[in-house]
């Protein structure tokens, strides 16, 4: 792991080079240790696939103190990791939440479901089966409030982003881009391939500090529901 100062009030920890679930577990562990050690000198953390950005208050500490402290934390986590890769994997898994997201997979709301299934020479139900057959991990959040980048989908489902993004993708749309999958928290332009729609509110201001449903490290299981259930759970058509 490499720690460097990227700006006057932020340090970046490079945890690895390749996207993997075990990195996400290490990043979750690092985040916890950093929050405990830094206290109010920490402004925020931005975990992503292979990195953790630590934004700090430069009126409380300086870059040298930050680098030294972060390197100590990295070392302690590093040695835990080397001694027992499986234990940190286990830790990551037991600490992280499992969130179920209901999805109505249907061409009426999944604009690209038919084309994707025929391109991949599978039936729509085979495609749905593949998407719901495994748990995904939240690798990063961003793009818009509550948007979570999850992976990795079965390689048979991997599909490149659309060459021309749609002007408007409806809120709740469930999409695939390369090996990642996500749900649009709100209507937005977007280039992901849309296979269904969820009634779940991914970002809800009335939930206060928990407005964003998904956080980095969470595990997500998509569950196929029918049209009636989708509407009963508050799903919106159109």
């Amino acid at each position: 792991m490499k720690v460097s100062a990227v700006s006057e009030n932020a340090c970046l920890i490079q945890v690895g080079d390749h996207i993997s679930e075990s990195l996400t577990a290490v990043i979750a562990q690092l985040s916890e240790n950093i929050e405990q050690t830094l206290g109010d000198a920490l402004i925020d953390l931005i975990p992503s696939y292979t990195t953790l950005l630590c934004v700090y208050d430069l009126n409380k500490v300086d870059d040298l103190w930050m680098l030294k402290t972060l390197r100590q934390i990295v070392q302690s986590v590093d040695s835990t990791e080397n001694n027992s890769v499986t234990s940190i994997d286990y830790l990551g898994k037991s600490l992280s939440r499992l969130i179920e997201i209901p999805v109505w997979y249907d061409p009426e709301v999944g604009y690209d479901l038919e084309v994707m299934a025929s391109d991949k020479q599978m039936t729509q139900s085979e495609l749905i089966q593949l998407h719901t057959s495994k748990e995904y991990r939240v690798f990063a959040t961003g793009f818009m409030p509550g948007f979570a980048y999850m992976g990795s989908v079965d390689t048979a489902l991997a599909t490149p982003r659309q060459a021309t993004p749609r002007k408007a993708v409806a809120a709740g749309s469930v999409g695939i881009a390369d090996i990642q999958t996500s749900v649009y928290p709100a209507q937005s332009p977007g280039g992901w391939n849309i296979i269904g729609r969820s009634p779940t509110q991914l970002f809800d201001i009335s939930r206060g500090d928990n407005a964003a449903l998904l956080q980095v490290g969470d595990r997500v299981q998509f569950v196929s529901v029918d049209r009636a259930t989708f509407i009963e759970l508050g799903g919106q058509l159109g």
């Binding site: 990227v6 700006s7 970046l12 990195t51």
Partner: peptide, 10 residues
């Protein structure tokens, strides 16, 4: 590149 956290002024 793999997306990473962006600091002010990047």
């Amino acid at each position: 590149l793999i997306s990473e956290g962006i600091s002010l002024g990047a």
